[in-house]
Design a protein around this nucleic acid. Structure first.
Length: 279
DNA sequence: AATTATCGCAACCGCCGATAA
DNA sequence: TTTATCGGCGGTTGCGATAAT
């Protein structure tokens, strides 16, 4: 069930009243300079009042976005490398469309950049190779699955509510902070990225450590929630956990898939399954 | 050379959970 | 306890650049 947004807030920042006074559209170099200077001088703790204090005719959201996605000094301008692309693929398979979480693992990259790169490059390439970019499974199997899912539920995306980590685990977004990584909410992957199943599968195939701990605690609670998990074990440990999943052989090998599953149509990527993903 | 289609990126929109009042 | 505000997120749109016809 969607929560009704308070009208006042929307009117304030994005509504017609604001549109009459606030500037929109592409940022000018002058605006960029004003914003960058102001953030360097005053910091970026209160985006809502920042434009007024800085003398910008933009809404706070717009300023924040411009800073986060373009003006921050630690942003990489270079094209996404093969290694980064590989990491994006693995992380997307683990996390689904959790772009900020994915960006948190790629220093210098923003969630918007990764999202755009995924939508314009990687998802198309996967489709061309017969792989469903949402599930990372062969398209035929994915189609079967979604068909089955549709029969029981109109939605293919889990309707679980978001779980946001406490502020203590949320990194600041000012210059000193890394890019991305502010999303510790870590919902289960949208559309087929069933993280609990994935962790269990990884565990069943030899993954030990956090998988055991998280699954056991999850079982006790009656449901797995990666957001809680990351909070529960702390950022460093969660980070290590993620690293271990990313680097796990199972996910390294996933770049190449054997033809068997295509024929069997079960879509599962198990041990020995190798998914072709070459440029 | 002109027109149309496609692509990629920047920015916006609407929603959410957290939190201050 | 309730309500308003805030920061942050993912999804979507708009537009300029480029390619194709």
């Amino acid at each position: 069930m969607k929560r009704k947004r308070p009208a006042r807030r929307g009117e304030e920042e994005t509504g017609e009243a604001a549109a009459a006074t606030l500037k929109r559209g592409p940022w000018t170099p002058e605006e960029d300079e004003v914003l960058a200077r102001f953030v360097a001088r005053e910091g970026c703790d209160r985006w809502r009042t920042l434009p007024r204090r800085a003398g910008l005719l933009r809404c706070g959201k717009s300023c924040r976005l411009r800073w986060m996605n373009y003006l921050r000094p630690d942003i990489k301008r270079s094209p996404i490398t093969g290694d980064e692309e590989d990491l994006i693929l693995r992380l997307h398979r683990l996390l689904g469309n959790r772009w900020s979480l994915i960006a948190g693992r790629l220093p210098g990259r923003t969630d918007n950049e990764i999202k755009n790169y995924w939508n314009s490059h990687l998802s198309k390439r996967l489709i061309a190779q017969g792989i469903d970019p949402r599930t990372h499974k062969p398209l035929m199997a994915a189609a079967d699955q979604s068909h089955a899912a549709a029969a029981s539920d109109k939605r293919t995306v889990p309707t679980e509510p978001r779980t946001m980590a406490p502020p203590s685990t949320v990194q600041p977004s000012c210059p000193a902070a890394g890019i991305g990584g502010s999303d510790d909410r870590a919902r289960p992957a949208d559309g087929g990225g069933d993280f609990a199943a994935m962790v269990s599968a990884a565990d069943a195939e030899g993954f030990k450590g956090f998988g055991d701990q998280l699954c056991a605690e999850d079982a006790a609670r009656g449901g797995f929630d990666m957001g809680s998990a990351s909070t529960m074990v702390g950022d460093d440990e969660f980070s290590s956990f993620l690293d271990s999943l990313i680097n796990d052989e199972k996910f390294v090998d996933y770049l190449v898939i054997e033809g068997n599953d295509h024929e069997q149509g079960n879509g599962d990527i198990g041990q020995g399954d190798v998914m072709e993903f070459k440029q």
